[in-house]
Amino acid sequence: MIGSVFISEYDEPPFRMSEILRYAGAGGIEKEDVLRLASECADMVRGKLTYRVCWREFPVRLDGTDVDLGFARTDSVFLRHRLAGCNRVVLFAATVGLEIDRLIARFSAVSPARALLLQAVGAERIEALCDRFCEDMACQAASRGERILPRFSPGYGDLPLEMQRDIFRVLNCPDHIGLTLNESLLMSPSKSVTAIVGVKKEGCGAGDDPEESAGCDACPDSDCPFRKK
């Protein structure tokens, strides 16, 4: 199906309270008052968001020092490492919609503590959507004897944010899922993600598997307040 943009819409994924607290800068604590406020904010969001993804597949070629993604070329070493052994990528854009931005703005005016927690709920929601979508992709890949690698986004490592323009051009995110890119390369709605997911044949490139060093462990910023412990 290389070449077409598809749209997937999901039901609300379950809320993960520990993730919400981590994004709010209160990871690992069990203070009753914070927990109560976090659940209040999660309840405000429950049933209010939409969970939409648009995606498209591209052939990928590692070409000298470049990665040719079919829609863009990059010399990102991080991405090159991540896509070793892949012959295709799934490029996707996901958003939980504008309502969360409205809620955050609303509480910014009256309750910064709630605004902060809503911000955290939003971050948890979009990550939950991405996880859900990637599980789907993993299932599809498995049925073809393939597997997918952890998602990688513009702005991670040395992959430039400018790639957002290419991604928006080929996915046509505004029409498909109502996701837009502004001139500073910020996305609106803000709780949105674009990412590249490598697809490789089962068994390929064993021994040099980037999957082993995915997520926070792969990131050089060891002081990051959001780093998973």
């Binding site: 209160a26 604590i29 203070k31 914070v34 910064p112 503590a113 902060l116 927690l117």
Partner: peptide, 8 residues
């Protein structure tokens, strides 16, 4: 004290 508590 964590950020949400500070804000509360």
């Amino acid at each position: 004290v964590y950020l949400p508590q500070l804000l509360m």
